[in-house]
Amino acid sequence: MKEDTNMGTHHKLIIGNCMEMSEIQDKSVHLAVTSPPYFNAPFDYKELFKNYDQYLELLRRVSKELFRVLAEGRIFVLNIDDMLINGEKFPIVADATKIFQNAGFRYRDRIIWKKPEGYLRISRRSGVILQNPYPMYFYPDNLLESIIIFQKGKFDYKSVPKDIKEKSKVDIKEIQDKKWYMTLWEMTNVLPNQVLEKDIAAFPEELPYRVIKLFSYVDETVLDPFVGSGTTMKVARQLGRNSIGIEIKKSLIPIIKEKIGFNGQQSLFKNDDTFELIEREKGWIE
């Protein structure tokens, strides 16, 4: 993908429910980035939650744990979007923003992720008005998702050693060429039926790549509490960061291992990179 710094990083996968992160010490994480399950989406976790309040309670409990484990001044990035279920639109972005503010985070920014116009995750709603060209038949297709940036307190820029700053320097040309400086990021989403993302609503590697580059330094620890197929962990390793991933589906262990470079038989990590698997006795699903 981009680069491999080979700095002897450590990667920990925890199989269990991320509403509780007892394995992670207070203020030990330098960046968190994640995309939680879509609320009862037919292509993700259909009818996983009994109701919308249960889904919001999940976010509330995760928000408190994230605030606890993040170091002072550090960033949490949430990729999320409103959801249309059985004709009802749920204001997930607004509700999630308020939940994380109530947990203590400062709402820092919102970036809109624009997907290619040739791809839609859900069937073309806009076709309704083409079949019925009259008022009240308009339903737009959604090609956008939100990337919400939160911060815990204020960051002390003087706390980072000069050599670490230089190793973590962001490529200005890359920022300009790909227009990272805008609040609109155009990124190609993971296409359907990719081998390691089959039946998983995974975000593209480009998303954690930008976030990790912009909000963490080499040798620091990146957390993804809804790690899915392991995309965040893979990119963190490539960029010389440590990673922690939490995943509730035990069946994804081999997928995650393969993606981040440890297939269970032979480690593909270079130098001193290491992998650790923690399987809780309860709190996971098949």
Rank of each mutant, 00 (worst) to 15 (best):
D26S: 11
N132K: 15
F90L: 00
F105K: 08
I248E: 01
P192D: 12
S229Y: 09
Y181V: 00
R280H: 15
Y55R: 05
F49W: 15
Y45I: 06
G87V: 09
L223T: 10
K12Q: 06
V222P: 05
R125P: 06
S146I: 02
A202L: 03
R106P: 00
G153W: 00
N263F: 10
R68V: 02
D273F: 00
A96K: 13
K167Q: 13
L13P: 15
P37Y: 01
P37W: 03
K169C: 07
R280T: 07
Y107P: 03
G104V: 14
I255L: 15
R280K: 15
I212L: 02
Y119R: 11
P91E: 00
K114G: 14
Y139T: 10
F39E: 10
E247F: 13
S146N: 04
P208K: 07
I122V: 14
I200L: 12
G240R: 03
N102W: 03
K98S: 08
K234M: 14
L223I: 09
L120K: 09
L277P: 06
P161H: 10
H10W: 02
R74H: 11
Y45V: 09
K46E: 15
G127H: 05
G8C: 04
A103W: 12
M19R: 15
K249W: 05
I248N: 04
E286V: 14
S168D: 07
F67N: 13
I129L: 12
V235Q: 09
P204W: 00
L130W: 11
F67S: 10
R61W: 03
